[in-house]
Nucleic acid binder design. Structure first.
Lengths: 182, 182
DNA sequence: AGTAGCATGTAATTCGTTACATGATTTC
DNA sequence: GAAATCATGTAACGAATTACATGCTACT
């Protein structure tokens, strides 16, 4: 269902063909979501059926291109998805992909969404930190250095993610998130 | 194919039942890979067929438990996977899951693997940094703050990942990777 | 004239989950 | 004796990819 909403999201600003949608996704949320034609076209057909999108009269009839336009019903559905957090945010990337569209969401809703997500992170982070506590009591850590390293990867990732959330929640300058030397 | 190797990996140290394998994965690479019985049992059946694993004579015949033992052929296959980098490391989590088993790999091979991965990161990072350069030239950045934020998320994530690689490549203390205040 | 890019779509396949079905053993 | 956990397995379903099949258009 994620892709469905990403497609609707790309249509919010302008009408596009399936082909163009793919390029948009690639250059936009492409970092977090790949979309092949094999998934885009069937979804588009289903969205048409559900009247979430409509086909524009092809002014340029020579090319057999189908320009899809989002309908009010589609807009509503998309915004609905954007502001509910019960969806599949177990996957972090899914949440970040959602944030990609947050410019279209009201400030108050953005706050609520991010805060809820931060709480999930915190909870998970806690589990990992406890796991670390446990591992640190074990002897012969040289023997499972790499196993431990993946735990630290997880912790570090969640900490960075939490801070990213913190920055964007307050609309602080993004530059502070990255290292600029080198 | 990833799960196949993770299963073989968990069997490298000791023989386990399908049920136990699941618990092992959960508490081990579980952060990066989920495995349900619906995937584990069929894979186990296939591995048995391919003679990658064998069934131990059930000393405790009363319970119908099947203890699987990895065969030499299975070991070879696993180690082969562990030291080749052509697999699906497009997904970062797949690489980290692999690192989980690096304690079983020779130092020289670990170096090669991580270095190769760091180069992929670097290349991708470069693309994102160029994208950022481009975006920074555009006016009205307030209008796409959140879109930009996901780009910064990507950059920050790759930078952290690169540093994580750097630390583990040199077997440096892992503590430096996380923030310990709070 | 040829290549790259625009454009749409389907069929086979992969990889996995969820839900179902079943039953033994341990623990309280 | 009830509940939790151990233990195995299948069938239905889901979400997406890859490969295939087709053809137009713009550039060089």
């Amino acid at each position: 269902m994620m892709l469905v909403n990403i497609i609707l999201g790309t249509l919010m600003k302008k009408s596009l063909t399936g082909y163009e949608i793919r390029k948009c996704i690639e250059s936009g949320v492409g970092m977090f979501y790949k979309a092949s034609y094999g998934s885009i076209y069937p979804i588009l057909a289903k969205l048409l059926e559900q009247e979430m999108v409509s086909l524009e009269e092809t002014e340029d009839a020579s090319r057999n291109q189908k320009k899809y336009t989002i309908t009010p019903k589609g807009r509503e559905s998309f915004l609905q998805w954007l502001q509910t957090n019960d969806s599949d945010e177990k996957k972090i990337e899914a949440f970040v992909a959602k944030v990609f569209f947050f410019d279209q969401l009201e400030d108050a809703d953005v706050q609520i969404q991010i805060e809820a997500f931060q709480m999930k992170i915190q909870k998970y982070l806690h589990e990992l930190l406890e796991k670390r506590e446990y591992f640190l009591t074990l002897p012969h850590q040289e023997n499972f250095y790499y196993k431990l390293s993946t735990l630290y990867y997880g912790i570090s990732k969640l900490q960075s993610l939490w801070e990213w959330c913190q920055v964007i929640r307050n609309r602080q300058p993004l530059e502070q998130l990255v290292r600029n030397e080198k």
